[in-house]
Each structure stands twice: as structure tokens, then as C-alpha cells.
Amino acid sequence: MSSNQLQLPKAILPIIFLVIIAIILFSKSFVTIEAGQAGVLWKRFGGGVVIDEPALGEGFQVIAPWNKVYIYEVRRQESFEKMKVLSSNGLDIQLDASIWYQPKYAELGKLHQDIGEDYLNRILLPTIRSAARSVVGRYTPEQLYSSKRDAIQAEIFEESKKIINDQHILLDEILVRDVTLPSTIKEAIERKLKQEQESLEYEFRLVTADKEAQKQIIEAKGKAEANKILSASLTDKILQDKGIEATLELAKSPNSKVVIVGSSKDGLPLILGNN
């Protein structure tokens, strides 16, 4: 084996090393950002997180190999949360809620610098839990179970939004999907609501019956008044004239009859028929 053959591997080693380094640097220079994502650029020798430039958009991006890109989901996201809170009288209540949120695109660099990628657990969820405890603590279990669900949903959203807005996060909506009360409390509330419903139905029947009675009284009064007016208008003269008219009509009838001329006690002729 010649000396040249022995020296050849030693000459190739630096080249192989440089090729490996080049491949590594080359692979780190290209970043693919998927649909619905954006990238925050971190410069190792340029001041760290870039906050004065727009975030890197979707597609193929070329960066210096010593820099780094942090990928964020910028579409609306949903998180399901079960929260244990206390009502105004100290009873345990469980809220099942959906939270719709997304990072503010224009403030993505500040979000990464101030909070980081785990902003959901660091900022968003603790804020919503705190707001839920504060809001639910104002209501009784009866109110939470029946008529106040929409109200607490809106109040939790508004209180959370006040804190979240300056944290580079956009809170779109909070939906309270379910309110779970202790079983004994729930049963007591259901019994109470049933009794109230039965009471309302009974009161409705009483009101309906009273209205029907009032209607009948009004109708009876109306008929009595009409009869009174009619009686007052029927004078003796009118009755006599009506009797004469009726007698004349009867006299025209072809049926056999006997007419007695004179007057009855009412001063009317008497007609006696044989039929």
C-alpha cells in the first residue's frame, strides 16, 4: 500500500465535515409555514424576537441558519373547560364552557416575547376561571339553573375581555354549555319550579273563570237594560194600536170566525173563531 493511498482518507475528512455542516445549515435556512399559521422570527445576532416587522406568512420562507422561527396557529381556536366555582350561598357549581380565541396577528411578536407559545394556559384560561368565579358568586343556584345562564355567559365574557385585550390575544366568545348543580339542590329547585308552575296554572284558571263570570254579568245587565228600555217604550196607546192591527189582520183570514163588536177590558174587539 503506497503512502498516497494512506493519505487520501485524511484529505477527504475535512471535505466530508464541511459538507455535513453545509447540509445542516442549508436545512435550517428553509421554513415551511402551513395554512392558518404565521411565524415569529428570532434573530440570534439581531436583537432576539422581531416585533417591529410583520409575522412571517404562509408558504416557503428563507432565513439565516442561525436564526429561528416559532410557528403559531392564527385561526380561531376552541378550548373546552370545566370549572369548579361557588354560588352566592357557597355551593359548588360546575360550569362547562367553550372558549373561542386566537392570537392577534399584528401583535404576534409581542405575544411571543411577553407570554410565549403556551399563552392559553398562562394567560387565557386563568383569566376566564377568575372571571367565572367572580360572576357566578353573585348568583344563587336557582338563578344559575333557570334564568341567568345567558347573563353569566355575557358577564364572564366581558370581564375576561377587559384583561385579555391588552395581552395580544383576541377573545371571540365564551359559551356556557352546561351548569351542573349538586343533585340534592337540583332536585329541590325542580320541585320548587314545578310547584310554582302548578300555582301559576291554578291562578290562570281562577282568572279565566272570573273573566267568564264578569262576561256573563255584563251580558245579563245588558239584556236587563234592553228589556227595561223596551218596556218603557210600550205605552197603552202603542199596545192598543198593535192590538187593532193584529185584529184587522186576523179578520182578513179566510177561517170561520165570530166577531163580537164592542170592547174587551183592553178596549179591543173580540174575535172568536170556531177552529
Rank of each mutant, 00 (worst) to 15 (best):
K161T: 02
R191E: 10
Q197T: 12
E190H: 04
S263A: 13
L200F: 08
W66L: 09
S87V: 03
I238G: 06
R138A: 11
I115A: 03
L25S: 09
L18I: 14
L8T: 06
M1V: 12
K186N: 10
S183I: 11
I23W: 12
Y72W: 04
N275S: 06
I174D: 01
K148M: 07
Q214K: 12
E142W: 10
N227L: 15
I218P: 12
I271D: 01
S160I: 00
K162P: 05
D178I: 07
E249S: 06
V258C: 06
Q61F: 04
H112V: 03
L171D: 00
W42R: 14
I218C: 15
V259Y: 03
S253I: 08
K10H: 15
W42P: 12
S233C: 09
L95C: 02
A22M: 07
E107Q: 06
S134R: 08
I217W: 09
N255K: 09
Q214C: 08
K228T: 10
M1A: 13
L181Y: 02
M83N: 01
I93V: 05
V261F: 00
Q102L: 06
L268W: 02
W100S: 09
E212T: 07
D114E: 14
L95P: 00
L6N: 13
E245Y: 05
K110D: 15
L250N: 05
S98R: 09
L200A: 11
L248A: 05
I169F: 02
E117T: 12
E225Y: 10
L175S: 12
A246F: 07
N121F: 04
I164C: 02
E78N: 11
F80D: 11
L234E: 15
L171S: 00
A154L: 08
L108C: 01
G222I: 04
K237F: 15
W42G: 15
L120Y: 01
P65S: 05
A106T: 09
V85I: 07
D166V: 11
D172F: 07
I244W: 14
S87L: 03
T235R: 08
S146A: 09
S264I: 05
I238R: 13
Q240N: 13
K242D: 13
W66P: 05
L250Y: 10
V258N: 05
G90E: 15
Y202C: 11
V19W: 06
S2N: 13
Y70A: 07
S134W: 06
V62Y: 10
D236S: 15
T235L: 06
I185H: 04
I174M: 00
E73K: 08
V179A: 01
S2D: 14
L56W: 02
V85D: 00
T247C: 11
Y202E: 12
V259D: 02
L86N: 07
W66S: 11
L230A: 12
S183V: 10
I152W: 00
K237T: 15
Y119S: 01
K252W: 07
Y105D: 08
I123G: 03
